[in-house]
């Protein structure tokens, strides 16, 4: 009956064994993902989120095939057409561009921004977290105070300052969003490492003469992954919203790019005449973020060793 707990418990035991024998790495990883999958598939909302995400990713990848029009093609004689106009299923925006095509292409940018910003922030944050957590001492003190300073800034203010310094543009907005995200991951990873590094199997690894990098790479990093995965999944949605917000303020992707934040920003000027011009991209952002949250919640439950269902 305590199968699930044991499965997770297996992780630690296995790692200890692994620490001793320096073997049996793959089965442990597999069983972790098997556990996740077995639990996740019971969570309808998480599955729904996952399917929606896969759908959006596929549509974005197939944009050149699926989009009925060039997303940048302007026709000032076909402005603000309503939803359902023949040839323009979701209508047109204030410059006569096809909203459906812009939506499809825009998914590429928004997802790219979300995932790559998270990847960047996570990589940087994880590295810093592993090092500071493992070495401690003055390195930890200095770096963590810097991280505290970063965290003390309101995220939007920090991102605005970064974009102001670098100039507006999609790449700079991505970088800004990513930098803002670093402290979050550093904190999570450092926390895990601090807890892990005093455990017996790590001490044993030390005693057996494993070098520090080996311990970090094979023991500390894999074992701090579960909270990271949850955080990253939830964070992608946050990053997408944040980047769209920067675009909305004119600091992210630049016109005429088909990007959801820009579409929202330009569409809101015509909210009375053509509400669909802002509602459609707004809904797209909302649904993607929502499904990421569902998925993130599902993963958290699936990875939580204390949660029984």
């Amino acid at each position: 009956m305590n199968n699930e707990l044991e499965d997770v418990g297996l992780l630690d035991t296995a790692s200890e064994v692994e620490g001793l024998t320096e073997q049996v790495k793959t089965p442990v990883q597999q069983s972790l993902f098997q556990v996740i999958w077995r639990r996740l598939r019971k969570d309808k909302l998480a599955l729904l989120g996952a399917f929606w995400l896969i759908f959006v990713i596929l549509v974005s990848l197939l944009a050149p095939i699926l989009a009925p029009h060039d997303p940048l093609e302007i026709n000032l004689r076909l402005r603000l057409l309503p939803i359902g106009t023949p040839g323009h299923f979701l209508g047109t925006d204030d410059l006569g561009r096809d909203i459906l095509s812009r939506l499809i292409w825009g998914g590429r940018i928004s997802l790219l921004v979300g995932f790559s910003a998270v990847l960047f922030a996570m990589t940087a944050g994880t590295l810093i977290g592993l090092l500071t957590g493992f070495y401690g001492g003055w390195l930890d003190t200095i770096i963590m105070r810097l991280i505290d300073i970063l965290m003390a800034f309101p995220a939007i203010l920090l991102a605005l300052a970064i974009v102001a310094a670098l100039g507006p543009g999609l790449e700079h907005a991505m970088l800004a969003v990513a930098i803002v995200g670093i402290p979050y991951y550093t904190r999570i990873v450092r926390g895990s490492v601090l807890a892990l590094r005093e455990l017996e199997y790590i001490l044993a690894a030390h005693a057996l003469g494993s070098d520090k990098w080996h311990i970090i790479a094979t023991h500390l990093f894999p074992n701090s992954l579960p909270p990271l995965i949850i955080a990253a999944t939830l964070d992608v949605g946050w990053m997408i919203m944040f980047a769209a917000g920067l675009s909305f303020l004119g600091l992210g992707a630049q016109p005429p790019a088909a990007e959801w934040g820009i579409m929202l920003s330009e569409g809101h000027k015509f909210i009375r005449l053509a509400p669909h011009a802002s509602i459609v991209p707004g809904l797209a952002i909302f649904l993607v973020v929502l499904s990421l949250n569902f998925l993130g919640d599902g993963l958290r439950d699936a990875l939580d060793p204390h949660l029984r269902r």
């Binding site: 302007i74 204030d94 410059l95 016109p255 330009e266």
Partner: peptide, 10 residues
Amino acid sequence: PVAMGQAIQA
């Protein structure tokens, strides 16, 4: 300005 800029750009 932004809408006019994009029309000019196109």
